[in-house]
């Protein structure tokens, strides 16, 4: 393994530790104590003894902070994230697991489509620098990208869903199908994913186009490409073999970075469509001041993004000889 890759993987490990520790410190550092705040919210409906139970649920005790930290790490290692308040008495880990598949399906699909489509458009724009594609597409996509993700989702949901009635506007599948490995269920999930997925693609496409266009321009100005032209190779061969192939890998590196952005957008998009993934859970947690669920979501999403980044880095290193130091 190269030193560069080791350093990157080390960075993810440090970031994971920071996230885990931050998650431990936040409820203890912040002004006011979430347990008391919750208790106040249910004023009169809870016995005073319930306050202690709440504090326990939130993992706050009077033990020395070092001891609490060790306890916390131990629980985490067993996948213990506490008990959700909104979905009481379900454990947070169970609630999150229930929404994970939907988010992976929706955000993963949108990310792959946006990356493929955006990189193709960007490569073509760079190839015909100053052509109609190059002058029309980036500004148009930047305009689209200027809208907040979730606003595009609202607009699409109203116009294409409510007004024209072309797509379902809420939930991940219709009430007429039962979850299971049936064709009807699969068709329903796809139909429900098109609108939220398309808004996510529309909002993130511009970034991919620009990244690919700019990398590709650098590659197209390079010596090997000029040599290929001098040898009289055909344009399509130069485009694919010398241009796209060399420009794609740096673009793939930013794939990992973009994951966090896309996921953040996906969370808000899910909310608009009441799509039962992590974003919808996040909304429930915020509205219900469900701190255990909120923290569990933060931790799960952060660690998932870090893990995905690590995988992308290992792949890029394996594919690209230039990154092997």
């Amino acid at each position: 393994m190269s030193r560069g890759l080791l350093a990157r993987l080390g960075l993810y490990a440090v970031a994971a530790w920071v996230a885990i520790t931050l998650n431990f410190l936040l409820p203890r550092w912040m002004p006011g104590d979430p347990a008391s705040a919750l208790y106040a919210r249910f004023q009169g409906r809870l016995e005073p003894s319930a306050l202690d139970a709440l504090r326990l649920t939130l993992g706050i005790s009077d033990a020395p902070i070092g001891e609490q930290y060790v306890d916390y790490l131990g629980q985490l290692a067993h996948g213990e994230l506490g008990t959700s308040l909104v979905y009481f008495p379900s454990p947070v880990s169970e609630v999150i697991a229930g929404g994970l598949g939907w988010t992976l399906f929706l955000a993963g699909g949108a990310l792959i489509v946006a990356f493929t489509l955006g990189s193709t458009l960007g490569a073509l724009a760079a190839w015909r620098r100053g052509g109609w594609l190059d002058s029309a597409v980036p500004p148009l996509l930047s305009l689209l990208g200027a809208f907040p993700y979730f606003w595009l989702a609202m607009a699409a949901s109203w116009f294409l869903g409510f007004h024209l009635g072309w797509f379902p506007v809420r939930h991940a599948y219709g009430p007429e199908v039962q979850p299971g490995w049936t064709l009807a269920f699969a068709a329903s999930t796809v139909r429900h994913a098109i609108l939220p997925g398309a808004t996510m693609v529309a909002a993130s496409l511009g970034g991919w186009v620009l990244t690919m266009r700019n990398t590709m321009m650098g590659v197209l100005d390079d010596e090997p490409l000029r040599f290929a032209q001098a040898r009289g190779l055909g344009p399509s061969r130069i485009f694919l073999h010398y241009g796209v192939r060399n420009a794609l890998l740096p673009s793939l590196t930013s794939f990992g970075m973009a994951l966090g952005f896309v996921l953040s957008g996906a969370l808000l998009t899910e909310i608009v469509f009441a799509y039962p993934g992590q974003g919808y859970l996040l909304l429930q947690a915020v509205r219900g001041q469900d701190y255990p669920l909120l923290q569990g979501l933060f931790l799960t999403i952060t660690l998932a993004v870090l893990g995905a980044n690590a995988v992308v880095d290992v792949l890029v290193t394996a594919l690209d000889p230039r990154t092997r130091g």
């Binding site: 920071v18 936040l26 953040s264 808000l268 909120l294 979501l297 952060t302 993004v305 980044n309």
Partner: peptide, 14 residues
């Protein structure tokens, strides 16, 4: 490398 929104949300919520 940490995703932005979940971090912002969890801090803001407290």
């Amino acid at each position: 490398v940490m995703p932005g929104l979940p971090l912002i949300v969890v801090i803001a919520a407290f």
